[in-house]
C-alpha cells in the first residue's frame, strides 16, 4: 500500500466519522424545521414574489406576463393614503401600548415574583379569549343602541347616541386590546432583569427619581422597549380583522386592502405586490432594530 492510498483511505474514514458525528445529529435536529420552512414559508413567499410581477387576467386569474404595473399602481394616491393611514394608526397603537404597558410592566416587575406571576396571568387571560369574540363584543357595546351609548344617554351626559363605531379611534382601541400583551411581556422581561443596584447607585449619586428614570431605567430597558415596539407595530400594520370588525368598510387599512385583492376583487398580482410592500416595511423595521441593538452593545442584551 503506498502512502497516498492510505491517505485517501484515512480521508474517507474521517468523512464517514464526520458524517456520523456531526451531520446526522444536525440533520435530525434542524432537518424537520428546515423542511417546514422551505415548503411552507420560502416556496409560498417566492410564489407571492413571482405573481406580484404578473398580470391579472379578465377572470380574476393570473396572466403570466412579466410587468411592474402592480408596483406602479401602489403609487396611486388612493393606495398611498391607505398605506400612510395604516402606518399612522399602527404607530399610534404602538405609542399608546408603550405608554400604557411600561408603567404596568414596571409595577408588575417590582412586585414579589409570586404576585408578579399572578398579575401577568391576569394580563394574559383576556388574550386566551377568541380575538373576534372580543372585537365583536366591543362592536356590540359601541352600537348606537349599545351598552355604552345607552349608559351615557341615561346618565344624561349626551343627548343623542355617539358615533363610536366605524372610526379610526375605535380601530386603534381594537388594535390596542389585541396588541397590549405583546407590549407588556417584553417590557416586563427587561424591567424585571434590571438590577435594582443601578437605581440605588443613581440615587446615591444625587439623581432625583425622574432623572434616574430618564438616564438609567429607560436606557437599560431599551431592548424591551424596542422589542415591544416591533411586536406591536408589525402585526398592527398588517392586521385586517380589527378594522374589519370595528371599522366596517369605512376604515381601510393595508391589511384589509390586501385581503380584498385576494378575496373580493380577485386581483392576486396586485395583492401580492401589496404583500411584498408590507414585508419590505417589516424588514426595514427589523433592520432598524438590529442597528439599535448593535449601537448599544450593552450587557443587558
Amino acid at each position: 500500500m503506498n502512502p497516498s492510498e492510505s491517505q485517501g483511505e484515512k480521508n474517507t474514514l474521517a468523512k464517514t466519522r464526520n458524517l456520523k458525528r456531526n451531520t446526522l445529529p444536525a440533520l435530525t435536529m434542524a432537518g424537520p424545521v428546515t423542511f417546514w420552512m422551505l415548503v411552507f414559508v420560502l416556496l409560498p413567499l417566492l410564489y407571492v414574489v413571482f405573481i406580484s410581477f404578473m398580470r391579472r387576467d379578465a377572470f380574476g386569474g393570473i396572466d403570466y406576463h412579466v410587468t411592474l404595473s402592480n408596483y406602479v399602481e401602489i403609487l396611486q394616491p388612493v393606495y398611498l393614503k391607505v398605506i400612510w393611514k395604516s402606518i399612522k394608526l399602527a404607530l399610534l397603537t404602538t405609542v399608546i401600548c408603550i405608554l400604557i404597558g411600561y408603567p404596568l410592566a414596571y409595577y408588575i416587575a417590582r412586585k414579589p415574583s409570586k404576585l408578579a406571576a399572578k398579575l401577568l396571568m391576569l394580563v394574559m387571560i383576556p388574550f386566551w379569549t377568541n380575538t373576534l369574540v372580543r372585537l365583536y363584543s366591543i362592536n356590540l357595546m359601541g352600537q348606537p343602541n349599545g351598552f355604552l351609548n345607552q349608559f351615557l344617554l341615561r346618565a344624561g351626559l349626551i343627548s343623542k347616541p355617539l358615533d363610536i363605531l366605524y372610526s379610526d379611534g375605535i380601530v386603534v382601541v381594537g388594535l390596542l386590546i389585541s396588541m397590549l400583551p405583546f407590549a407588556i411581556l417584553p417590557l416586563y422581561a427587561s424591567i424585571e432583569k434590571l438590577d435594582k443596584s443601578y437605581l440605588e447607585a443613581s440615587s446615591d449619586l444625587g439623581a432625583r427619581p425622574a432623572i434616574t428614570f430618564l438616564r438609567v431605567t429607560i436606557p437599560l430597558t431599551l431592548p424591551g422597549i424596542v422589542a415591544a415596539v416591533m411586536l406591536v407595530f408589525i402585526p398592527s400594520l398588517g392586521m385586517y380583522y380589527v378594522p374589519e370588525a370595528l371599522g366596517g368598510g369605512k376604515v381601510m387599512l393595508i391589511g384589509s386592502l390586501i385581503r380584498n385583492q385576494f378575496l373580493v376583487t380577485k386581483n392576486w398580482p396586485f395583492g401580492a405586490s401589496l404583500s411584498i410592500l408590507l414585508l419590505l416595511i417589516t424588514l426595514i423595521m427589523l433592520w432598524l432594530y438590529t442597528r439599535i441593538a448593535k449601537l448599544d452593545d450593552m450587557e443587558v442584551f
Binding site: 447607585a201 443613581s202 438609567v216 437599560l220 448599544d296 450593552m298 443587558v300
Partner: peptide
Amino acid sequence: TVFQSYALFPH
C-alpha cells in the same frame, strides 16, 4: 456608596 457589585451603569 461603593457597591459590592460596583453597579456601574453598563450603557
